[in-house]
Write a protein that binds this DNA or RNA. Structure first.
Lengths: 180, 180
DNA sequence: TATTGTTATACTCTATAACTATA
DNA sequence: TATAGTTATAGAGTATAACAATA
């Protein structure tokens, strides 16, 4: 269920947001826990910005990457955003259907194609940027002068955890496949 | 697809982890973006700890809350963890099936029941705690002396974003429309 | 009528495996 | 054979709406 309209007990709107989040004492000092709920709060705030509109927050990163790397192939794109290729197909279809991207057959290789933003795609990206910027300005205001340090710490977490700690199951010579 | 066994291009294991994450320049200075990828890296690292085992990382928070609030009802529990009640049912069933929790009918109200950890549930929680602690120690090592500040900042983000910013859509006493 | 737990359903995101058409 | 993109399928995770039992 979800009594959202049941009566006047009307919490905010989402079950997450609203009131003060209860934090289990045992978790209150864990970086990992706060990383999660802070990210959740942030993401949820963004959703409120895009709302029902055709702007899917999930597109933002993808459009940004496309904007900065016009002509990439889906496989390259999947590596850039760290997801499996197969997860991109339907999103690309959606973007294509909305005229936000153009797929152009590669000259040399008939199997592949390059993806780039259309004018509409660039426009959509700009709209999303406005939302993203507004959101991050709010975050900037919250963290204030400590932003540089916060960014440093988060970057360090990404860099140090990001690499396969349990070292690559050492399965043979990985022919240099690079992220690119 | 996912040619994980196709040949020697062998990345780490997950498409996410591995190599250095590519960060689109346009996003590199956004707190929200780094919040997300840092959280992703953290979560992914935890998964490596639990692996295939019967330990679902998602259980940790729930078991912790139950441990600290023995006897809560599902509805109370859903409020404590900020999710809709309906999302708890299947998880509780799973925990129950594994003998990790016990459901006991309430005396006063036949509709509800209290949930508490069994001995096995406490044991499972302890196992998860070991993993969580190890993980957070790694994070502690990464952030070093700046942990207190990092925690303060993350907490501030949660607190300030967490509350319904777009104030409750001011939807009047809508008691009318009910489910059925 | 209101509330509790549950069920049904759906949507997002992501993954693996297998398929096709090239190479 | 190996690679590129796609399809099929699956599984978390979460949401809303509706239901039956009980209050």
């Amino acid at each position: 269920m979800a009594d959202h309209k049941t009566k006047a007990s009307a919490k905010t709107s989402s079950p997450s947001g609203g009131e003060e989040a209860y934090v289990p004492p045992a978790l209150a000092n864990l970086i990992g826990y706060y990383l999660r709920i802070a990210q959740e709060a942030s993401f949820q705030a963004i959703r409120q910005g895009t709302g029902k509109s055709d702007l899917k927050p999930g597109w933002y990163t993808l459009l940004t990457i496309l904007s900065e790397n016009p002509g990439v192939t889906p496989t390259e794109l999947s590596k850039l955003c760290g997801r499996d290729r197969s997860t991109l197909t339907s999103t690309l279809n959606g973007l294509d259907a909305r005229g936000l991207i153009a797929r152009r057959r590669k000259a040399g290789d008939q199997r592949s194609y390059g993806v780039k933003l259309t004018a509409a795609g660039e426009a959509m990206l700009r709209k999303l940027q406005v939302i993203a910027r507004a959101h991050d300005e709010r975050l900037d205001a919250i963290v204030g002068k400590d932003k540089p340090l916060l960014m440093t710490l988060l970057r360090r977490i990404v860099d140090e955890l990001g690499n396969g700690y349990p070292p690559p199951p050492a399965r043979g010579l990985g022919k240099t496949s690079r992220t690119r």
